[in-house]
Design a protein around this nucleic acid. Structure first.
Lengths: 242, 242
DNA sequence: CAATACGACTGGTATATACCAGATATAGAC
DNA sequence: GTCTATATCTGGTATATACCAGTCGTATTG
């Protein structure tokens, strides 16, 4: 391992990525101690603080375990990369080895009612986009989704074909808005007749109802969503930390 | 604000806690810019790097927003402290303003079957503790819970009264084991007759089934649990980041 | 031989300094 | 007035250094 001055990444990033690579590829198995900070610093001819910055990231990610007085070791267990991070339905399905698709039921602009406006942080009567769609995994219907977006923030959204572009991708590329945090709640419900028909299951069968309020980097609400997942096919997985 | 040399906390911790306090008590409202790192450093007579360490923590927690070239600002939105962190049922209920209780159905030692042994990382035939209990919130049954613990790790657990002590508390205080990460999955199910009876609801009503594999700091599995929450009363809330 | 003391580690905290790149306000040019 | 160049902010990265407090192996002591 050597530091590459031409690499546009900062030095600590290079070091961190290198160690991460070693862990992910088995060169540093679970439980083994990595070199000490001073060793890395001397070997790479960088400051110890730079090495610390690199290791900090990996500790943050849960890959390394620091304990004062003892060596820093590789954490056991599979490293769940996208621990609790954002995953669009598409990414979610891909990570499970399934092919995601979606059928747009509705894409309109309307006046927000009090509830939606409140959640979006808009005044009652503000305009919002409403997107309703059925989500498919391997051609099987998995969820019915309703999304509310503030019109003020995403003016011109109607131009885009939502069956071709991922909504989150559009947000980033066209509106320079990155979903950063989301408050989510999950409950168990029974499907209504209408929902059941869309999902091709019996009316009354159990389902997961997920409500989500998504915010950008600066904490502004950019999306309010409600999704109903069929209970017989969908399981929500995540990782809690600390 | 001044640095207190007698304070056992490190300087950066003092600074961080102080800023956090200011944010939580409204002295620094959402969106306002905090002083620059250099200003803090000069005012407090500490190094800029020390101030950075303090601010780093708050950025990590999502309380502050750093953007190169611009001032560091207080993040908008309510700060969800226990974002996705661990919460015992007891803590969960307390955070909702409810009183938690539990009724022990079963507390025995048995031989792990292949599935449980596998999840716990034990060889088939290893001894495990099994805890089964009904969880109450404000005297209303909310969930049925089954927990499997490796006997090797928690020898002597039978001595304790689980209706008096929190399991996680016992783990920490008596066995020096801190739950650190957990893989969790949630699905929607219908209650069986037996479960429904324990929860005082109609058989077949919708419920949340949560499965959890909990690990300690070093990634060793310390608990495998399954909990069934009634769908008409319980909603799971969490926050996703990034 | 066991108990203890010590020295050589480890990471944790802190300082002072330097230069970079992006953002912004201000002063100047047109 | 509007545009532009520049000085001066911001945070981001990096260095070299220092001392502290745990941990642990080893040598010394009883």
């Amino acid at each position: 391992m050597r530091i590459n001055a031409k690499d546009p990444r900062p030095i600590f990033k290079q070091i961190g990525d290198h160690i991460r690579h070693d862990i992910e590829h088995g060169a540093l198995p679970s439980g083994t101690a990595i070199s000490s900070e001073r060793e890395y610093a001397e070997q790479l001819k960088v400051s110890r603080m730079t090495v610390r910055a690199a290791i900090n990231e990996l500790v943050q990610e849960g890959m390394l375990l620091r304990r004062p007085g003892r060596a820093t070791t590789v954490a056991n267990g599979k490293i769940n990369k996208n621990a609790i991070g954002f995953m669009s339905f598409t990414e979610d399905m891909q990570s499970r080895g399934m092919k995601a698709a979606s059928q747009l039921l509705n894409f309109r602009e309307e006046t927000a009612d009090a509830a939606v406006a409140g959640q979006l942080g808009l005044s009652t009567g503000a305009r919002v986009f409403v997107i309703e769609r059925v989500r498919f995994a391997n051609s099987e219907p998995m969820a019915v989704e309703s999304i509310y977006l503030p019109h003020s923030r995403f003016a011109g959204l109607v131009k885009f074909d939502l069956s071709k572009h991922s909504l989150y991708q559009l947000m980033e590329q066209e509106f320079h808005t990155r979903p950063t945090t989301a408050d989510e709640s999950i409950e168990a419900v029974q499907l209504t007749t209408a929902e059941a028909r869309l999902l091709s299951v019996r009316s009354g069968s159990p389902a997961l109802l997920a409500r989500r309020v998504t915010r950008d980097e600066e904490g502004r609400v950019i999306e309010v969503a409600k999704a109903i997942y069929r209970g017989d096919r969908y399981r929500m997985v995540f990782m809690r930390q600390r």
